[in-house]
Amino acid sequence: MKQSLPERPRHIGILRLSALGDVCNLVPTVRALQRQWPEARITWIVGKAEYGLLDGLDGVDLVVYDKSTGFQGMRAIWRQFEDIRFDVLLHMQQALRASVLSLGLKCDVRVGYDKARAKDWQHWFTHRQLAPHPRAHVLESFMDFARLLGVEDTRLDWSLPVPEAAYQEARQLTGDRPYLVISPCANPRLRNFRNWSAEGYAAVIEHVWQRFGLRTVMSGGGSPQERDMGEQIRRLVPNVEITDAIGRTSLKGLLALLDRARVVIAPDSGPVHMANALGTPTLGLYATTNPDRAAPYCWRSHVVNRYPDAVRRYLKKSAETVNWGTRVRHADAMALITLDDVVEHLDGLMAATRDIADDVTEPPHED
């Protein structure tokens, strides 16, 4: 017998710890829940880095779980919630660690993914599962949780909090002239293989400078891999104005930097989804991950997509026959993206968004 879902939940729990791009894709679901039940309390258990992105999200109690603290941190969360019971807990993190964490949270009903989408045996830890939704984008998979609860108004709204101090931080790096942001690297995890080449980025920087008069700001974290990529790119275009902000911004500062950009270019990584959430024109570079599942949602028609080619070449299959979400873990896959691919899509994106070009240098709330 299925566990009943609440008709008017008073306290909704959300368990989604990571990653930056995924929590960005989850925010519209939170907004949909708020529209449906404005009086409901929403508590979101989130990762440490992700908290830095979401801090200040209105109407949401954010609670940090730092996975590096292991079982000790898990027990701390359980103690923090020992006197709290959720009407419904939305278990949106497909990881065994998160499933174990969920068991220590009191709730009337725990909702998770359907068996086809669940990973790490998540469906064994939930009372109710989503209806099947084959070949869904990540954002739509999150929104399926709201749909299961009866939410019909699924309009997209992010309204991410970006404080004025973050805009000041961004302006100190960029001034007030328009710019393009390139975030060249994805998270430097083992066998990630999502990065395009320094030579390719350098040629794009030269192109936007010559054709559009746009200078480039490079963004990213402070890892050795990211810093090295930035240095390689700068050496390849010594005569073009580039601001290297790699490792030089806070997370909120990065949001402000992306918000004020004319265009953002990046591989499948947090910044493409952050830029998408802010309404900034976004060009995603995809070959090792499927953009139909994970492209910047509002800019899917502009994505550079060599994923089908990578699947054919390195997996000897077609994109239609591999499991949804299959990654191509081959070091040469991103080399299938050509400079012509990127320039063609970039020029098209610039033309399609010409009407917003005059509005990208200042945050809308400023006097």
Rank of each mutant, 00 (worst) to 15 (best):
K48A: 14
K48N: 15
G52E: 10
G52Y: 02
L53E: 04
L53N: 02
L57R: 05
V60G: 01
V63M: 00
V63P: 00
V64A: 00
D66E: 11
D66C: 03
S68W: 04
S68N: 11
S68R: 15
F71R: 12
Q72S: 14
I77S: 00
Q80H: 00
D83T: 10
D87A: 01
L89G: 03
L90R: 03
M92Q: 14
Q93K: 06
Q94K: 12
Q94F: 10
D108M: 12
R110Y: 10
Y113T: 11
D114G: 09
R117T: 15
K119P: 08
K119A: 15
D120I: 05
D120N: 14
Q122C: 10
R128L: 05
Q129Y: 02
P132T: 05
P132E: 04
P134W: 05
R135E: 15
V138C: 04
E140W: 08
S141I: 07
S141P: 00
F142P: 04
F142N: 15
M143L: 07
A146I: 04
A146L: 03
A146D: 03
R147S: 15
V151S: 02
V151G: 03
T154D: 13
W158I: 08
V162E: 07
V162G: 11
E164I: 15
A166M: 09
Y167Q: 03
E169C: 09
E169S: 06
A170M: 05
A170F: 07
A170K: 04
D176K: 13
D176C: 11
